[in-house]
């Protein structure tokens, strides 16, 4: 198929950036290609012409590392439900389509170059408390603590988050509530995470706020965009947990 793509090009964080149109480079695209393989082809053609290829992040290309991050026709990770950009295939498009490709847009995720953004703010949130404080070597036998299947499954549902940031990109307020709440739901659901529950909730929410992410106004665009289908209910749980922890502190 032949396509027209408009790609956000931005030299560095200071550059204003803008869309560039490519048509010649997007001819003869196979429907079996992944979306990123289509961009690989475009990049090869740009390079051969002596132009700078489009910079974009990707690594595992099997939907688990969370590196790839682009807004395709206004939707983070593109049109398919529960699918990262790297797993999106060109079958989703047809001959003659026009595709707009942009980076995640959020104050807390500054653009580094073209489609690549800096997501360190997510690491900062985890560093604030997204862990269980236990040193290596002191763990009891794993079966000495029984954890019901439902509890473990529910923690796993939340732990499936890949930290890609699509939730932030989808949110009109650039909120990181789904990301933060998913980590809290994973840790706070498990008995191992209980002792630090209140402190963890307060610290991570605090770190999220100071990183420059917006607040939640219950649009739940995050849930719709999440490639791992993390439920928006974790946000409600986080709000409850936060209120409880705040009272407890007083």
């Amino acid at each position: 198929m032949n396509l027209t793509i408009y790609v956000w090009r931005q030299k560095d964080a200071k550059d204003a950036g803008g869309f560039e149109k490519y048509t010649d480079e997007c001819k003869g695209i196979s429907e079996h290609m992944s979306f990123l393989e289509m961009l690989d082809v475009v990049n090869d053609r740009l390079t051969e012409k002596g132009k700078m290829p489009i910079a974009f992040d990707s690594d595992c290309r099997e939907g688990i590392c969370g590196t790839c991050s682009m807004v395709i026709n206004g939707r983070p990770h593109g049109p398919w439900k529960a699918t990262t950009t790297c797993q999106l295939h060109m079958r989703a498009f047809k001959d003659g389509d026009v595709i707009y490709i942009e980076p995640w847009r959020s104050k807390a995720f500054p653009v580094i170059q073209d489609l690549i953004v800096d997501r360190k703010a997510f690491d900062t949130i985890i560093q604030a408390g997204g862990y269980i404080s236990t040193n290596c070597g002191s763990a009891p036998d794993a079966n000495s603590m029984l954890i019901g299947k439902e509890v473990s499954d529910s923690a796993m549902d939340a732990a499936a988050c890949i930290g890609c940031g699509a939730c932030v990109a989808a949110c009109p307020n650039s909120s990181a509530m789904l990301f933060t709440a998913a980590k809290l739901a994973h840790m706070n659901t498990l008995p191992q995470g209980k002792p630090e529950e209140a402190q963890r909730t307060l610290s991570m929410v605090g770190a999220m706020d100071s990183a420059g992410f917006g607040n939640c106004s219950n649009h739940l665009e995050c849930e719709a965009a999440c490639p791992k289908e993390i439920s928006g209910q974790v946000i409600a749980a986080m709000n409850r947990g936060y209120a409880k922890a705040s009272f407890g502190k007083r």
Binding site: M145, L146, I147, K149, S152, Q192
Partner: peptide
């Protein structure tokens, strides 16, 4: 054997049986 203990202590949600064992 220690790895499973350590990972569980760190909150890794391994699959469980209904009785709560791994």
């Amino acid at each position: 054997r220690n790895i499973i203990d350590q990972a569980t202590a760190m909150g890794v949600p391994f699959a469980r049986e209904y009785g709560g064992t791994l």
